[in-house]
């Protein structure tokens, strides 16, 4: 299935979860400082493992940067 992750198309196996996608991203912080939204809905960290992705999902994975 095709999932858009931070604007990049990714081919994922069926059953892929938010947790598995985050783990696959280089540079993703282990603990605090990262958050995920799917189509404008924030997915809390506690639900990453249980949230299965669907074909066509759009994920935004964000971290802290300098700003403001």
């Amino acid at each position: 299935m095709q999932v858009m992750v931070n604007g990049q198309q990714q081919e994922l196996r069926p059953g892929a979860t938010v947790a598995s996608v985050v783990r696959s991203l280089p540079g993703a912080p282990e603990g605090r400082g990262i958050a995920v939204a799917r189509g404008g809905e924030v997915i809390p960290r506690s639900a990453w493992q249980s949230t299965k992705l669907r074909d066509g999902d759009q994920l935004e994975v964000v971290v802290a940067v300098q700003g403001g």
């Binding site: 540079g27 993703a28 940067v65």
Partner: peptide
């Protein structure tokens, strides 16, 4: 203050 942006695999070190 800190901002939120897409994870950049090339970024070195976290501001946090």
């Amino acid at each position: 203050t800190v901002a939120l942006r897409r994870l950049d695999p090339a970024a070195r070190g976290s501001i946090l």
